[in-house]
Amino acid sequence: MAGPSRKQMFRFLSQLGAFILTRFGFWNCFSMLMLFAERADLKRKPDIHLPYLYVDMGVAVLCASFMSFGVKRRWFALAAAVHLAVSTYAAYVGEQVHYGDWLKVRMYSRALAIIGGFLVLASGAGEVYRRKARSRSLQSTGQIFLGIYLICVVYSLQHSKEDRQAYLNHIFGGELTLVLLEVLFGVLALAFLSGYYIRIAAQILATILPLVILLIDGNIGYWHHSRKVEFWNQMKLIGHNVGIFGALLILATDG
């Protein structure tokens, strides 16, 4: 019996990417609830003022539900992108919680990448049966957000001792390998920003990102105990990278 063809494999990976990205809102809301419960024990405030927090989560769950069921997925993916942009901005200007600069870069750059992923989804990429032509402008805008995220990764690897140490703990070759990773991420960022070789760049990054999630983000002891990142904030950041991985699968197979 013949194995699956290349086209069938790409279709499966594209659907998997869409499945991951459309469910991102559920995990994000759950991890936020757990984070704020964790803070409540220490009498610390959430990122967004109440009762706007409940509205924020309600909109996120609504968009995720409609996207998951495939109901007007393009429209609700666009709505999810706008909503995440507004909630991220509200959390940033609210300044209810103090974060270190290095942690702000990690948090807000990943939010930008997820916004880019939703814009890619809103463009029509990843649809099995595309009834309308995809919006190249939306896809290009989403790719730019992903490129900005990669620039932030390069910046963190150059200027954040916390991020540098997290990578140095798990890579062979020390500083030399780290420099090569910075160059690789920089080249991939240029690909996403320019719009050239998108599929190849997404395939490369989709191969690397699971290792980053497993070895770097998954090192809970390092982030939580050594760098004092709240446990559920780190879990939330892991969810962001998983969502970014979903967007990359879409671009890697239908970019």
Rank of each mutant, 00 (worst) to 15 (best):
T22S: 13
L13S: 01
L209C: 07
F245E: 00
R23M: 11
L119K: 01
L176M: 11
Q96K: 13
L42N: 13
V154P: 02
L13Q: 03
K228H: 14
L251D: 01
Q96M: 14
M9D: 10
N219A: 09
F172E: 12
S87M: 04
A18M: 13
G173H: 01
H159V: 08
F172A: 14
D101M: 09
Q234C: 08
L42I: 12
G255D: 02
A77N: 02
M34V: 10
M9G: 06
L62M: 14
G142K: 00
G126R: 00
G116F: 03
R131Y: 14
M235W: 08
S160E: 03
V71C: 09
K45Q: 12
N241E: 11
A79F: 02
L146Y: 05
L16D: 01
L138R: 00
A60F: 03
G17P: 02
L190E: 03
I148T: 03
H98W: 11
A111M: 13
N219T: 05
C152R: 06
H240P: 01
L178Q: 01
V97R: 12
M34P: 08
L42Q: 15
A166M: 01
L35T: 01
L168S: 04
A191K: 07
T88K: 01
A202I: 12
S226H: 15
I220A: 09
M1E: 06
T141Q: 10
S68K: 08
R39H: 03
L181Y: 10
L205C: 08
Y89R: 09
A191W: 02
N233E: 14
Y99P: 05
I200D: 04
F66A: 14
I238F: 07
Y197D: 06
R227K: 15
Y155A: 13
K228E: 10
R136F: 09
G58V: 10
L42M: 14
P210N: 08
Q143D: 04
I204S: 05
V71A: 08
D56L: 09
L211D: 05
L33P: 01
V59I: 14
A90P: 04
Y52C: 11
L209A: 07
L33M: 12
Y129W: 13
V86Q: 02
L193H: 03
F66H: 13
A202Q: 03
G142M: 01
Q165W: 08
V128W: 14
L176V: 15
Q203C: 12
A206F: 04
A191D: 07
A122F: 02
F26W: 10
L16E: 03
T22A: 09
F245C: 05
G174R: 00
R131K: 15
A125H: 14
F118A: 04
N28Y: 15
G3H: 07
A40P: 04
I114A: 04
M34K: 07
S137P: 07
A252I: 11
I115H: 06
V93R: 00
S137R: 14
I115E: 03
A80M: 09
I238H: 03
Y52G: 08
G58E: 09
Y222I: 09
Y54G: 06
V82L: 12
Y222C: 05
F172H: 13
D47N: 11
F245A: 05
E230T: 01
H49Q: 08
A166W: 00
S123R: 02
S68T: 15
A91H: 00
S14L: 02
K228Q: 13
G117P: 10
G186R: 04
L33V: 14
